[in-house]
Design a protein around this nucleic acid. Structure first.
Lengths: 362, 362
DNA sequence: CAGCATGACTGAAGCGCTTCAGTCATGCCA
DNA sequence: TGGCATGACTGAAGCGCTTCAGTCATGCTG
């Protein structure tokens, strides 16, 4: 402990190096940040001395203070990382984002959410980032106020418009509607819907009518709405469509919900899921119950994660360009950072990918 | 652009608030950080004024500079986030870590690696974190020097000891050896091994003898070594065991490698994989080739990710306590931050989980 | 050779905050 | 009433860096 403290206290600074070389602090700073401002021989000498003194370069924090920029983008998640990373869709988005900002020498600060459906405001208030990206937080999450209070630029992904923020999103409603139409065309008439969280309260279970109103997660709202509205237009009353809400989007929660859905009477001949993970759970549940997909029951997912092509059977699903979503968000973040105005929202396309988990109703 | 700049310039600071309330800057600071240092009525007044002025609390960067602590832990990855997050094992570790540090109001800064097998030194040098966690980087990655140069405390996961660093690791060699012994006991004698990267150069393919030496990734080294040494002790010469190196650890790369392994002559009756993801790829490859698991070929994985219980067939695999690994790393990081000395390495247990992807040789 | 552009380096003013040694009433005890 | 502990607040010294307006030789032009 003592020695750590001592280490800290002794760490050389710009001044140390400047004194050792016999130049001004500004010159040493220039040696690192503006090589064109000094002769290369002097620069070499400075760098060499720095090395021998154990000086690792300008302190990032002090640098950030002086430049008023921390070269980092904050990423706000609706839940803890556990839930987050078990969702491959998020991983892909995050990767797209990370590679974009990393390419511009910005780092990524992760801000996990809690039961309120987003990071705590105190976390946001203290995060060392100069632009924030929100990923599918509930509408009016407290985190948004915290971002606004700091006056940080904001990019939202899968989120309704917020004043002054840039936005990238996917046509979730349309995608869901494509899937529902497809199944209707295949002759199905008894449906079940499996959605992920409608509310951030961590509840799983059958969805009552009142829980279906004022859904704060836009994605859930649109996918569920896209399914139910399309069915309703075709004459399938929402009241006759059992809906299960899973508190997260993973395979096991999907299995649980699907078990419930597949034991309703009459049994649905088609299951519409809000994500591929949930759909994988359905495949499992069907197996558990001795049902065959797709002859006994058709299943569609949403996202088209890579695994959807390899499941057994391969999944019919709604494709959205996940990596693009992340990349685009990264570009927007960098643009806002550079002082750009938020452009009009980027809307990404969806399409239905037909594989083997669906079949015409026999 | 103008307005953003103006916004920036106008943002209130502690001084603005202090002046507005008519107290000293120190008192405003105390209102936020040491409520016991002033009367609660004054504190209320300060907070109220701050709110009305649009002051969001002390600037995190300035605060970090003054306190010489950025309340963040850096996480260094061997690859880009894409590869990283497609690996559920990493996600789980990261979640354990994140929830631990988040509970102590520390944030998480991600530092993705590149083709050198770790984050670029420049990234490390500029990262605003006061402790670093390295996850399975290659031995002597340049990132380590950068950490050392900054004098930051370091926690390594799955990594050989580095002077002054804390360490948590899993008994990979033992785990691999358990799996190999098990298959030997089951009567198998023709094996194939599927490993993830031995070197950070992004090469996939059959592994030659020279590539097998001086493997910089400890995990790869130990798992591969555990497999081959155990087989060798039982009389199965390493030269007779085909080994495929996948450049990453995902299902598709596994499938590719398994296709090669399963088309060797004689065909292996058992496949030993360095990860569950690779093993899932084997299951797929076997299906592709019209082989049945486990009657035609047995497959074992490594990690025991949740999905291993649900694959078809469920995977026999080596279990390691992934979440614990992350949590423990988080605790160590916090401990080092508090000035603690690195304790002796934490060694986590492994065990073999038998499921349905293995069978006695017929 | 005067005049001037150029290159190389410096001084000092911040960036916004924390912290610690004080200062100054106040109230209490003997 | 003197002495002193206590609570409330302040002044000023940093934290380590960037940046911009200079300063000062130096060499080039006409």
């Amino acid at each position: 402990m003592l020695s750590v403290d001592a280490d800290r206290r002794r760490r050389p600074t710009l001044d140390t190096v400047a004194a050792a070389v016999g130049v001004s602090r500004a010159t040493v700073s220039n040696a690192y940040n503006r090589p064109d401002q000094l002769s290369s021989s002097l620069r070499e000498r400075i760098l060499e001395t720095a090395r021998s003194l154990g000086y690792a370069g300008p302190d990032p924090v002090a640098r950030s203070l002086a430049t008023r920029s921390s070269a980092a983008v904050g990423f706000m998640l609706p839940q803890g990382l556990s839930g987050a990373f078990s969702d491959p869709a998020l991983s892909i988005v995050l990767d797209g984002l990370a590679s974009t900002v990393d390419g511009h020498d910005h780092s990524l600060v992760l801000m996990p959410g809690d039961s309120t459906g987003g990071p705590r405001p105190s976390i946001v208030a203290r995060a060392q980032a100069d632009v924030m990206v929100a990923y599918s937080l509930p509408d009016s999450a407290p985190a948004f106020d915290a971002v606004a209070a700091r006056g940080l630029p904001l990019v939202v992904i899968d989120q309704p418009v917020l004043p002054g923020s840039a936005r990238v999103e996917v046509q979730d409603f349309l995608g869901a509607s494509l899937a529902a139409s497809f199944l209707l065309d295949q002759g199905h008439s008894r449906f079940g819907v499996l959605t992920f969280a409608l509310h951030p309260d961590g509840v799983s279970g059958p969805v009552s009518a009142d829980r279906r109103s004022a859904v704060p997660f836009r994605v859930s709202r649109d996918r569920l709405g896209g399914y139910l509205d399309t069915l309703a237009k075709a004459g399938v009353k929402p009241d006759n469509v059992p809906v299960w809400e899973a508190r997260g989007s993973d395979r096991e929660l999907g299995r649980l919900g699907a078990r419930w859905l597949l034991t309703r009477t009459p049994r649905p001949s088609a299951l519409l899921c809000a994500s591929d993970q949930l759909a994988f759970g359905c495949l499992q549940a069907a197996r558990d119950l001795g049902l065959t997909v797709p002859s006994d029951v058709s299943v569609v997912g949403f996202d088209d994660v890579p695994e959807a092509a390899y499941s057994d059977p391969p999944l019919t699903t709604v494709r959205q360009p996940l990596a693009d979503k992340g990349r685009r968000a990264g570009e927007l973040a960098l643009k806002l950072l550079a002082g750009g105005r938020p452009p009009r929202p980027t809307r990404l396309d969806v399409s239905l990918v037909q594989r083997a988990s669906t079949a015409p109703r026999t």
